[in-house]
Design a protein around this nucleic acid. Structure first.
Lengths: 254, 254
DNA sequence: CGCCACTTTGAGTTTTATCAAAGATCGTGG
DNA sequence: CCACGATCTTTGATAAAACTCAAAGTGGCG
């Protein structure tokens, strides 16, 4: 995979505000927050499919917010394996760094992607200006944390079959949250290698799990399309509870 | 395990500031931050060993900061298994909640523990008063996130043997960061069941891995004490890199 | 049409889990 | 101080799950 040559587009504060408001996290943007956001040095970058956006070990000075497209965040290991951490989509932010400023994982595009890039110093200024913005970042990190916990639980405690079912349900929920049409039949541009790397399985074994799921009349994964055939049974087999996607620190007390 | 009956101690702002300053994250506390911290409605609670501090599904209105003792955070599954997410220790904070205010995982003590409890509304006020405090919370969440990524990678990509080695090295680093003496020989009050639940292994298999590690002259885990016999070889076998513990969002640019 | 990447299948092996039960260890009460 | 129970550790034998290697099938694209 080659290094991503991006294409830069005009700065779009308005689009950023729209994106944040459509996010699954609770965002209450008042005047102070809006004006702080307007002062952000945000750029929109477009990347083709299958390029590396941020490489493991690379210097990082920005966070990125996904506007469109599918990507993946992973860690490469010396033993040749890799763990896919997440498939970020619209409204997800990516770009963490070690204390000395380097990325600990790789972020790559799968389809063409469009990302907002926000330099860290600019974000820091905006938060000082409108402290409420920090709650958004906290909510986002917190949501990512709970999704990671669910991912870890999935890999650590569930059989390959159940694990696969669980991931497909999670993807369905996330695609739906991004506003794409029918959650029971959605576009999913992942290869079986990528699914396997996310689930800690070999592609061969994942393939057999997909076949079982198909033969059981539960889900079909074919030509980059997921079709959920029996969602109720699938949810019950996978012990799936989408609640973890809506986690937060300072949530509303109903 | 019974519900934790805690014992409440006099409010200790000073101790809280000390704790934050000794934290592995970068904390620069100026006058504004100190006075905001002083206004926090923080209490210190003490729990005996082996009690549940926050139960899965329980209402949460506070975050907790560990002052002393060993605990564990885990998720229980319907299939009877559980995934241990973390063994929080001094300076770590615990207590996340779903958007509607309930805990998604259980937090239990292993040894007697002492925790600072900070009500969320109070924390929110303090952050508004001193926005810089939000960076501390962000750094802490970010650090937890990277530790989770490493944990997921460990369970997803590494063999039982290597995985076990990696966890013991991580614990060694964390214990050292808490200021406890010799990192090559430290107290570790975990049972093999708990280690197994953290690693996604059965206790029987974990036991065999520990035996192998011992027979190879790498580590000994005996009577709740870890002795690292050959750290260099262990690090190389486990592909261990402690860098993930020092991750942050707004780190210093060296 | 042919190449390339991805998917699918088969056969055999390794890793890990399961079941069963015997040692340790530690705290507690007699 | 010893005996007892409870919990934790260790071992053995067997079974199941997942991996490896090898190779054939599929589909899209230049």
């Amino acid at each position: 995979m080659q290094r991503g040559n991006r294409h830069n587009v005009a700065p779009p504060t308005e689009a950023l505000v729209g994106l944040l408001e459509s996010s699954p996290i609770l965002a209450e943007l008042g005047t102070a927050e809006l004006s702080a956001l307007a002062s952000l040095a945000v750029t929109e970058n477009q990347y083709p499919a299958d390029v590396i956006i941020i490489d493991q070990g690379e210097r990082i000075r920005s966070v990125h917010l996904v506007l469109s497209g599918w990507g993946c965040v992973y860690r490469d290991l010396a033993n040749g394996k890799r763990q896919i951490i997440d498939f970020p989509m619209r409204c997800d932010f990516v770009g963490l760094r070690t204390a000395d400023g380097y990325s600990y994982n790789t972020i790559a595009s799968i389809t063409p992607m469009s990302l907002f890039e926000i330099p860290l110093p600019s974000l820091e200024r905006a938060i000082r200006q409108a402290p409420k913005l920090s709650f958004m970042l906290i909510e986002m990190l917190s949501r990512q944390r709970s999704m990671l916990i669910e991912h870890l639980t999935n890999v650590g405690c569930r059989s390959a079959f159940v694990r696969t079912a669980h991931l497909l349900l999670e993807l369905s929920d996330r695609v739906r949250a991004c506003g794409s049409g029918d959650p029971d039949s959605f576009y999913c541009p992942l290869t079986q290698y990528q699914l396997a790397d996310a689930l800690g399985l070999t592609p061969i074994h994942l393939n057999r799990m997909l076949r079982e799921l198909r033969e059981e009349g539960l889900v079909m994964f074919k030509s980059y399309k997921v079709e959920i055939l029996d969602r109720d049974r699938l949810i019950s087999i996978a012990e799936y509870d989408g609640e973890f996607m809506r986690m937060s620190v300072f949530g509303k007390d109903e």
